[in-house]
């Protein structure tokens, strides 16, 4: 259940390294209980933003509040579980000892270690040294460390990196479970399918700025209908006369109509009524990945204008 009270609030948050603005005036609100997707290409400013949320990096300017206090506040950190830019553990310690070390740092009982290892499916390899783990196992241990404190807010930066397909599915289910338990989850990922399945709202960051924020449905936008209809000129005129049709264009002999899904029947009815023969109707939905590339692929756009 998503509450209305904000868990994370960023206002004009900026981080500059010399002249380079890694994060440039970011405004963002994440509400309690949300599973929130944070998307962006490499170097867009995702990890820097997440590090600022955890107090690892100080912002150059702007305001941030996490769980109602400034980022890095020790009391707030004890209510946040995080995995940022890959797991950082000691290669000479076992998985279990690494988590015990973190438990000591967090001031939580060592008895929390076992359930955290179980939750990520690593209990049977917990006695092996971290240095011998595969990338996927290291990633799981990172998520286990994030769960040690029974956190209200979970921040996961690319948690499925290095996981095999089964591991990715397990991780997805784990994140969905975290959301169901009422925890707020901020998930940064390159895997659009994953975000589309898991997240309720997303923000896309590019070159340090938030370029789009909204629900997954809002970002994916209206459905497109692909119609094969003759005569096409009559069809186009008929469609353009309909108030609920946003856009009509012709591509490879098909009419592409941008419209809400609930209007499909009305469109075919209007065309038939106008004497147009409709021989094919196909609904196409934009994937989050398409939206992401539209928002973040600069070189392609620039080339297309040449």
């Amino acid at each position: 259940m998503t509450g209305s009270d904000p868990v994370v609030e960023l206002r004009d948050l900026t981080k500059k390294y010399g002249q380079l603005a890694a994060v440039d005036g970011v405004n963002l609100t994440v509400h309690r209980g949300e599973v929130f997707g944070f998307l962006g290409p490499n170097g867009a400013g995702k990890t820097t933003t997440l590090r600022m949320l955890l107090g690892l990096i100080r912002p150059t300017s702007g305001d941030a509040a996490v769980l109602g206090v400034r980022p890095g506040d020790p009391d707030a950190l004890r209510r946040i579980g995080s995995l940022i830019e890959g797991p950082g553990f000691y290669p000479y310690l076992t998985g279990r000892t690494n988590l015990r070390t973190m438990a000591r740092y967090a001031g939580v009982p060592a008895s929390n270690v076992g359930p955290a290892l179980e939750a990520v499916g690593l209990a049977d390899r917990a006695g092996d040294k971290f240095g011998t783990y595969s990338l996927g196992m290291k990633q799981r241990l990172g998520v286990a460390a994030a769960l040690l404190k029974d956190p209200e807010l979970v921040i996961l930066d690319e948690p499925t990196n290095g996981l095999d397909p089964q591991g990715m599915r397990d991780m997805r289910e784990l994140i969905v479970d975290l959301g169901r338990q009422g925890r707020t989850v901020i998930l940064s990922s390159h895997l659009m399918g994953e975000v589309q399945q898991i997240c309720e709202r997303v923000a896309v960051i590019d070159r340090g700025r938030i370029v789009r924020e909204g629900t997954v449905e809002q970002l994916r936008g209206d459905t497109e209908l692909e119609l094969v209809a003759t005569p096409s000129d009559v069809a186009v005129a008929t469609l353009r006369a309909l108030s609920f049709v946003d856009d009509v264009r012709t591509e490879a002999g098909c009419l592409l109509v941008k419209v809400g899904t609930r209007h499909t029947a009305e469109i075919t009815r209007a065309l038939v009524h106008a004497g147009v023969a409709v021989t094919g109707v196909r609904r196409t939905e934009r994937e989050l990945e398409d939206v992401f590339f539209d928002l973040t692929t600069h070189e392609d756009k620039e080339l297309s204008h040449v």
Binding site: L56, I84, M102, Y105, A106, G107
Partner: peptide
């Protein structure tokens, strides 16, 4: 980063 984010 792992140590600092535990809360101390």
């Amino acid at each position: 980063k792992t140590l600092l984010t535990q809360g101390p």
